[in-house]
Design a protein around this nucleic acid. Structure first.
Lengths: 134, 134
DNA sequence: AAACGTGTATTAGTTATATAGTACAATATG
DNA sequence: CATATTGTACTATATAACTAATACACGTTT
């Protein structure tokens, strides 16, 4: 499990770390209930400030990705199961964004469809393996 | 054609405007060769600073979305046609990002597929109409 | 040449980001 | 109860990002 951040990338450190953790959770690399390294430990590993890690954990808790408690630690939360209008709308935006980006990359609709289905298949595999691991 | 920015949204104004313009170009709402409003004019309309608009135009030029010249103005560039390893990699990242987001939204693979194909169909329609318009 | 409309550069002020250091609060363990 | 470990809160400081105001440079048109 190794996170990597680059202070000179232009992207805020806390954003980089946050996205990596979200990705690790989404791919099953981090299982539900699994304990995260402590704020101080992770800060030491990445040579960044504990406050920065704390900020990441706090935001991830607000987003429902982690569950955290003083004296105990931070843990990967159980995946939310509700899919309502809020989620529907967010998904719509994400898809719209993808199409815009594909256009700029001069990807035609057929190629986009092909790459998407490939990626989706790989994704399902990874999720399946993650679920079996538990 | 009307852009809208919210200075209090937490998202930088120039990012908001940039994304809206990219989206307008990608949907054919802004046609190739079409002249953009001047830096000052757009700044006036949005009640923001001309420099902010200028920054957007500059970045969009670097990305190949606009073409700009002093004394003349800014214009929608012709769409890039090359799809190389660079673009392939960017597309891969974009798809990965979509999957991660879908996971957090508790969207299952089937629903994601369904919404994607719907959106792609709508997209093709818009592109077709945009091309006919020229 | 003059005037006008374009994008651009310079400077300044405000806000966000990151770090550091210290202290505090809650839980587990001896 | 004492101690260690966890996350949290607070203050202070430095740097970078963002926006704004003003002046400048390029090109067109009269």
């Amino acid at each position: 499990m190794w996170y990597y951040v680059d202070p000179h990338s232009g992207i805020p450190i806390y954003v980089q770390l946050k996205e990596q953790i979200k990705k690790a959770v989404a791919t099953g690399l981090l299982a539900e209930g699994q304990q995260m390294p402590s704020v101080r430990e992770l800060a030491l590993q990445l040579t960044i400030n504990p406050n920065t890690v704390a900020k990441v954990y706090q935001e991830l808790e607000r987003e429902g990705v982690l569950q955290t408690a003083r004296g105990l630690g931070s843990f990967v939360a159980k995946r939310r199961k509700d899919f309502g209008p809020q989620q529907e709308s967010s998904l719509d935006n994400a898809l719209e964004k993808l199409m815009v980006e594909a256009y700029q990359l001069s990807v035609d609709a057929d190629t986009l469809y092909a790459r998407f289905t490939e990626k989706l298949a790989a994704w399902k595999d990874r999720l399946k393996k993650g679920a079996e691991g538990q």
